[in-house]
Computed example of a mutant assay.
Amino acid sequence: MTDRDQLREAFETQEHNTPDPSAVYARVQELSQKYKRRRRGAQIAAGGVLGAGLIAGAINLPAFLPANNAASNTAAGVPAAAPAVSASADPDKVRDEQIEAYYDAGFGYDDAGRLAKIWKLSDDDRVAVKAEAGRRLLLGETLPIKPTPDAPVEERTISPQDEARYSAFFNAGYTWTEAEKLAKIWKIKDPSDAKLEAGKRLLAGQELPVKPTAEGVKEALTSKRVSKFFDAGYEIEDAVKLAKLWNLKDAWAAKIEGGKRLLAGQTLPIQP
């Protein structure tokens, strides 16, 4: 499983409701903290914040195949219709629990591809397949394949100095697209090395020959606020409560607002 696959998998978890790219990126961070599954090592150097175009492509996922009869579909190897979910249930939390059940049973990334073929789902829908598999496992069903866990991912260590440089690059709103442009300008072979050089110059107060996009700057600010929210120990349930207190439309907006207030040195009306 490549770093690109891992990032795409994380982005796919937000396919419903067509969220905005900054929401997807923050969700990646949130899920990585929840699962803690050996996915941290090479992400900063390899991918960082992806452009909105790649995010949009990664989250465009079709729905599950319809089912006429749960028993007959199970026998045929096609996912059964999902049971009714309470209107008060958090869809994100339900999906997280299903995927967690999938991994806890020992299944890996390649298993999702095998299940996609059996259930006649798109191979690009592996997160959706994992959620369906987890749902069935939680119902006590047995999946049609044996689990084959992912091979351990070799973690890359990164020095505090390089981490600060990467952070400066992304916090300024730059993305992989700008890193590629900078690599060409500076005649650097690897765009990841261009990120380090760019971060070094930014920390020194220098201007770069390439400017970040307005969208990139907005995404960086949003992700910074959401990261602050979770770094302070708050979780999804807290965001739901804050959304009600602040009369915001959803928990996502509460995460952004909460992070904004925390960065400003304010305290929130509830404790994590």
Rank of each mutant, 00 (worst) to 15 (best):
Y103F: 15
T177G: 07
F169G: 01
D231N: 09
E237C: 01
A81L: 03
E180F: 02
K200I: 00
V129L: 07
S122Y: 03
A26F: 03
V49P: 00
K211M: 08
F64I: 02
Q6E: 08
F11A: 08
T222C: 03
D92C: 00
A164V: 02
A84P: 00
G265P: 05
A151G: 13
G205I: 01
F170R: 11
A75L: 14
G48A: 04
E237W: 01
A116G: 09
D162R: 10
L137D: 07
R40W: 12
P79A: 06
W119E: 01
D96Q: 15
E100P: 04
E207A: 13
R38T: 12
D96V: 10
P147A: 15
K34N: 08
G41F: 07
S32I: 13
R38S: 14
D193S: 12
P152V: 12
V210Y: 03
V217S: 13
I99D: 00
D104G: 00
A56V: 11
D104H: 06
R136G: 04
G199D: 07
L202C: 03
K187Q: 15
G108Y: 09
F107V: 13
K200G: 02
L139T: 01
I270L: 10
I270T: 13
F170Y: 15
R95F: 02
A253C: 01
N69I: 05
D123C: 06
W119Q: 01
P144K: 13
A46R: 11
